[in-house]
């Protein structure tokens, strides 16, 4: 691993300044579970590593009438165990689905949202892939079992976060701090497709850092649920996952919000499926039709057509369990 300077910013406001001056050579570091792995592999070679862990106020969970605020530096384990988060069951399920107990004891919610893709071509220093500034996405003709089925091109990663789809379903906003000050964006608008930007997964500019997440208070009638399908059930990244929020009254679904993980280069808001299910009883056939409509534009690669089928079936499971829950 390349040697680096380790910087302890005196406060959060110092972070954009450090980033602006260090430019591409700086790396934000909180839990480190992703960043350190990339540094070992040589995929990230920062000269300056900015330690966010000890910045005061960066780790906190607060709940009030307006909703739930979580500092970006909050450990995933602390979210799972916090009393405040229990009012958002889907959030707790999604956070608990991340990694392992050990990783959740180390990783932060901000880091989970900003983690880099797990594509093995991206992760290997031996492949000068498109996302790293090369000319080729090796997934197109390579091993692409775990790659995206929709929204890809020219790069076919999937976004690996479990938390992000749930935040989108919960209509959360993300607070970003840069040189010009703070801004808030919808979780959904935080992420970009490779067409928009093949080198980054988020809208974060080089001087910016995620500082907190806010989930609006949910109406009592709203339920939330996260379903994750893994090849290995003990711990793994999602092959496909579904985050769903909806009200169910007399068997009718309303205020439906659905976001998928594991299918696209960004957490995939399934607006077509939402519209198709809104106000319906969501029978098996209706769910299947809704998901079929959502993935009508899917363009699976050679080894991942199974994800289209899985995405449809997982939506059925998500709604069935949402009803039971």
């Amino acid at each position: 691993m390349k040697p680096f300077q380790y910087v302890y910013p005196k406060d959060i406001k110092a972070v954009p300044k450090i980033l602006a001056e260090a430019g591409q050579t700086a790396l934000l570091y909180a839990g480190g579970t992703d960043a350190l792995a990339r540094m070992k592999e040589g995929v990230s070679q920062p000269d300056v590593v900015v330690n966010l862990k000890e910045i005061s106020g960066f780790s906190l969970i607060r709940s009030d009438k307006k909703g739930l605020s979580i500092g970006a530096g909050t450990l995933l384990a602390d979210v799972v165990e916090s009393e405040e988060a229990q009012d958002y069951p889907g959030l707790v399920e999604a956070v608990k689905a991340v990694g392992t107990i050990q990783l959740r004891n180390m990783g932060t919610i901000g880091g989970n949202l900003c983690q880099r893709p797990r594509c093995w071509y991206y992760r290997s220093a031996r492949f000068d892939c498109l996302r790293k500034g090369g000319e080729t996405c090796f997934a197109i003709y390579g091993d692409n079992k775990y790659h995206c089925i929709i929204g890809g091109n020219p790069c076919f990663i999937v976004h690996p976060s479990d938390v992000a789809p749930m935040l989108i379903a919960l209509d959360a906003t993300i607070e970003i701090l840069g040189l010009k000050g703070s801004r808030w964006v919808k979780a959904e608008e935080f992420y970009v497709t490779p067409q928009q930007d093949p080198y980054n997964e988020t809208i974060l500019k080089s001087d910016e850092v995620v500082t907190s997440v806010h989930i609006p208070a949910q109406a009592k009638s709203l339920k939330s649920h996260y379903v994750k399908f893994r090849e290995r059930d003990s711990f793994d990244f999602a092959m496909v996952s579904v985050a769903i929020v909806a009200s169910i009254s007399d068997n009718t679904l309303s205020n439906v919000r659905i976001a998928y993980g594991g299918v696209a280069p960004k957490p995939w808001r399934a607006t077509r499926a939402e519209k198709a299910l809104e106000g319906t009883n969501a029978t098996e056939q209706q769910i299947l039709d809704a998901a079929t409509g959502e993935f009508a534009q899917a363009e699976p690669l050679e080894q991942n057509e199974y994800k289209v089928i899985m995405a449809k079936n997982l939506l059925k499971r998500a709604i069935r369990e949402l009803r039971q829950g």
Partner: peptide, 16 residues
Amino acid sequence: SRRTSAAEQYGDVVGP
């Protein structure tokens, strides 16, 4: 000499 980086102004720096 290596630590003349701007980072020093905004926080504590250790390493490399």
